[in-house]
């Protein structure tokens, strides 16, 4: 039996970075406050001390510069791992990500394919208001040429981050910061990877398929338990990878349950739920017993005082589950 330890998500991510840095001497970590300080959430803690300030370093405060520089480093054969301090602050780098990083492989006919991984904490529930709470996954999932990966716990965080680091494509790795410390679990201390592009069935059920990712997965677990109390048997799926996403697992589940609810924090209109609902209804139309539904943030900026109303709660999700099952 391999050795295990109880780690929270921050520690699991730190462990993954540490092990990857050890194995791949082309790997470098750059970002704001990631060096001596170890990142404002401490994910890169101790890594500069261990790997030196040429491989783990603070940058000037300029996200476009960080990502643009990482692309150049990638073109030269390094393996840059970028931290953007909050996903809300990724937008100065949007041009570099969408027009450069995402298209480099395609537009160069495969001559160049810079391997840049961008980690960034995202999501609400920390009283962060407009600019420390957003879920921008769909901007990136909508951009061909990027992978978008979202772990939901320490085991997934480590395995998916290592899987993403081994992969040859650019990856936007979104870390649900609300559960950075709260999500703890026993995980292998050895090096392991989890496959990208594979959804994970968290809980088996017969009545309805509930799909989420990141911190919302935990809210959905609560909702599934509440629904069970009302006599409903919920199948819960952690999507894990949004681009590309594992349609086959969703369809297989909905073919059995005939119903689906997708949950996300981002606003409803054009949210990732819209994509899943459209694709699943087309693939599993004959099996559907009720309209496919979404429980999401509202079409407003992310609020401060009223954030508990904005974020999908277990109660709100449970109501939608019941409504869809009783349709």
């Amino acid at each position: 039996m391999a050795e295990t330890g109880t780690l929270n998500m921050i520690q699991a991510l730190n462990d993954a970075l540490d092990q990857y840095m050890e194995r791949d001497e082309d790997a470098v970590i750059l970002g704001e406050d990631v060096g001596h300080f170890g990142g404002v959430f401490r994910v890169t803690n101790g890594l500069q001390e261990k790997y030196g300030s040429e491989r783990v370093f603070d940058t000037p405060l300029a996200e476009a510069g960080i990502v643009g520089m990482a692309i150049g480093m990638g073109l030269a054969g390094l393996r840059p791992i970028v931290e953007i301090q909050f996903a809300d602050f990724i937008f100065p780098a949007f041009d570099q990500i969408v027009n450069e990083l995402a298209k480099y492989r395609y537009r160069s006919g495969g001559q160049y394919a810079p391997r840049v991984l961008i980690r960034t904490p995202y999501g609400g529930g920390i009283r962060g208001g407009h600019y420390h709470s957003q879920s921008p996954e769909v901007y990136f999932a909508h951009t061909p040429g990027l992978r978008v990966v979202v772990p939901s716990g320490p085991y997934e965080a480590k395995g998916l981050l290592l899987g993403a680091l081994e992969c040859a494509d650019p990856v936007i790795f979104l870390e649900p910061k609300r559960i950075y410390r709260a999500a703890r679990g026993e995980i292998p201390l050895d090096y392991y990877t989890l496959p990208l592009e594979r959804a994970r069935v968290v809980r088996k059920g017969e009545d309805i398929t509930l799909v989420a990712w990141g911190a919302m997965l935990h809210t959905c677990q609560e909702a599934a338990a509440l629904a069970e109390g009302e006599g409903y048997d919920v199948e819960l799926i952690d999507l894990q990878s949004l681009a590309p996403y594992d349609l086959r697992s969703l369809v297989r589940s909905v073919e059995r349950t005939g119903r689906m609810v997708v949950v996300h924090e981002a606003p409803m209109t054009c949210g990732f739920g819209a994509e899943l609902v459209a694709a699943v209804q087309a693939a599993a139309f004959d099996c559907l017993k009720a309209p496919l539904q979404r429980v999401t943030g509202f079409d407003t900026p992310f609020p401060y005082t009223l954030e508990d109303h904005y974020l999908p709660s277990a109660e709100r999700i449970t109501r939608e589950l019941a409504r869809t099952i009783e349709y």
Binding site: G128, G129, H132, P303, Y304
Partner: peptide, 8 residues
């Protein structure tokens, strides 16, 4: 209307 964090 309490929409932003303190200091905004």
């Amino acid at each position: 209307l309490g929409r932003q964090m303190p200091i905004h």
